[in-house]
Deep mutational scan, measured.
Amino acid sequence: DETGKFLVLALYDYQEKSPREVTAKKGDILTLLNSTNKDWWKVEVNGRQGFVPAAYVKFL
């Protein structure tokens, strides 16, 4: 159920650099879980949760 969740689009490829991050490919649609940090947003992609740089994604 996606009610109340926001989707964001990956603008660039991002390769995770730590276990707390997730890899995303340009064009991926990610479920935004938390955007309270202006630099790192928590997302879910391909069943995995983790952080990506906020500058790499935008709201749909």
Rank of each mutant, 00 (worst) to 15 (best):
D1E: 13
A24H: 05
K26L: 07
T31K: 13
S18T: 11
L30S: 01
F6V: 15
E21C: 12
E16H: 08
P19H: 09
T31F: 11
L9N: 00
L32D: 00
P19L: 09
T36M: 10
K5N: 10
A55R: 14
T31R: 13
G47F: 05
N37E: 08
V22W: 03
P19M: 09
E44N: 03
E44M: 09
L7W: 13
V43M: 01
L33D: 00
N34Q: 08
V45W: 05
A10V: 15
Y12G: 03
K58N: 05
F59A: 10
D13Q: 04
F6G: 09
K38Q: 10
K25D: 02
R48D: 02
A10I: 14
K42P: 01
F51K: 01
K42N: 04
E44T: 04
I29G: 01
K42F: 15
S35V: 09
G50H: 03
V8N: 01
N37F: 07
V45F: 12
V22C: 09
V43S: 00
D39K: 13
Q49E: 11
K42E: 14
S35W: 15
V57D: 00
W41Y: 09
E2L: 14
G50R: 01
L60T: 05
L32M: 03
V52A: 02
Q49N: 05
G27Y: 05
A54L: 05
P19I: 10
L30I: 07
W40Q: 00
L32E: 00
E44H: 03
F6W: 14
G27L: 04
D13L: 08
N37L: 08
K5V: 12
V57W: 04
L60H: 06
F59D: 05
E16V: 05
K25G: 04
Q49Y: 07
S18N: 11
D28Y: 08
L32N: 00
T3W: 12
K5I: 12
T31A: 07
G50Q: 02
N46P: 01
P19K: 09
G50E: 01
G50W: 07
T3P: 13
D39L: 14
W41V: 08
G47Y: 04
A54R: 11
L7Y: 15
E2D: 12
F51W: 14
A54V: 07
V57H: 00
W41G: 00
V8G: 04
S35G: 10
N46M: 08
Q49A: 10
V57L: 15
A10Y: 06
G4H: 13
Y14K: 01
Q15F: 15
V8T: 02
K26M: 09
E44A: 07
N46C: 09
T36Y: 10
K17L: 08
T3K: 14
T36R: 11
V57N: 00
A24G: 03
P19T: 09
Y56D: 00
L60W: 11
W40K: 00
V45E: 00
K25A: 07
Y14V: 03
A10E: 01
K17D: 04
R48S: 05
D1R: 12
F51D: 02
L33S: 01
R48E: 04
E2T: 14
V8K: 00
L9D: 00
K26T: 07
Q15P: 06
G4R: 14
G50D: 00
E44Y: 08
S18R: 07
E2N: 14
L33K: 03
E2A: 14
N37P: 03
D39W: 15
S18V: 02
F51L: 07
N37Q: 08
R20W: 15
G27V: 03
E2G: 14
L32V: 13
N34Y: 08
K5H: 12
T3A: 12
F59G: 05
W40T: 00
E44W: 07
K26W: 06
N34H: 06
E21L: 07
V52Q: 01
Y56T: 09
L30C: 08
I29W: 06
G27E: 03
W40C: 06
W41C: 05
F59M: 14
G50Y: 06
I29L: 09
Q49T: 13
N46Y: 07
E16A: 15
Y12K: 11
D1M: 13
K26Q: 09
A10F: 12
N34W: 09
L32Q: 00
L60M: 12
S35Y: 10
F59E: 07
S35I: 11
E2Q: 14
L33E: 00
D39P: 02
R48K: 10
I29V: 11
G4N: 11
W41E: 00
S35Q: 10
N37I: 06
R20Q: 12
G47R: 02
E16W: 07
L33H: 02
K26S: 07
V8L: 15
R48A: 05
Y12L: 09
T23C: 09
K17M: 11
K26R: 10
Y14D: 02
L33T: 03
Q49C: 11
D28Q: 13
D1Y: 14
K26A: 13
Q49D: 04
T3M: 12
E16N: 05
N34G: 06
Y14M: 03
V43T: 01
E2C: 15
F6A: 11
L32G: 01
Q15Y: 15
V52I: 15
